[in-house]
Design a binder for these strands. Structure first.
Lengths: 112, 112
DNA sequence: ATTTTATTTCGATAATTGTAGAAATATCGG
DNA sequence: CCGATATTTCTACAATTATCGAAATAAAAT
């Protein structure tokens, strides 16, 4: 993954409505939710939501499919996994034992 | 964790320079790196970098400590763990078996 | 064919964010 | 105390992003 793609993905999550959308999709599971239901659930006008959904999809965090008149959006679990791998790449120079310093429960393992 | 805090954290990562800073800190490990070294490594003016570092710290993704004239910034592994937990909360309604649909290797386990 | 339902694209405005020089603050060494 | 080094705060300008009504597109029902 390239840095520009990661910036776009984090940018997609860096907005109140879009973050709520993504969490809703994560909780909904692979079948997804229609654009209309998402807009209604979050009390946002359809046109605004459409914009946000496009941003999330472009960022590689969701996929969409048309089914009759509705468009279903679903979380892209593979996309988020790639993003987190990129973020934590070479954590502690690849030596997780460096992370656990002192009494605080800080460790690469719980993160990477 | 509250949504507003998560938005701030993702916002901190949603910018080329700051994302590079965070990844540098993740790779550097718990000892951290001085503000000056970070600015030099990424070829960014000190005042601009100072702003970015403050944003990352406010977002709960890094900690800072003064040591003589230098200020060391270090990745906050606990902070990032909390953020990811919030993001993936109740993935697939808590039933990971829902994630693995079909042949594609999509699963809550590899993400959550 | 026309109407109804679902969603997107357009366009304009409002709000937020990034940038970096100059000045201010903090720490150390002589 | 004074000069050098490290970093932050201030300030102003440029650039990006969010919002949402209106019009356009797409699919289904009558």
């Amino acid at each position: 993954m390239e840095a520009a793609a990661a910036v776009a993905a984090f940018g997609a999550l860096a907005q109140e409505t879009r973050l709520a959308v993504f969490r809703l999709l994560v909780q909904a599971g692979p079948d997804g939710v229609t654009a209309g239901d998402i807009a209604e659930a979050l009390k946002v006008p359809a046109s605004t939501m459409s914009h946000h959904l496009a941003t999330i999809e472009r960022a590689g965090l969701a996929t969409s499919r048309r089914e009759s008149r509705s468009i279903f959006y679903a979380a892209d679990y593979e996309g988020i996994r790639k993003l987190l791998t990129f973020l934590m790449e070479d954590c502690c120079q690849g030596r997780p034992e460096l992370c656990g310093t002192g009494s605080t429960a800080q460790s690469c393992d719980t993160v990477c």
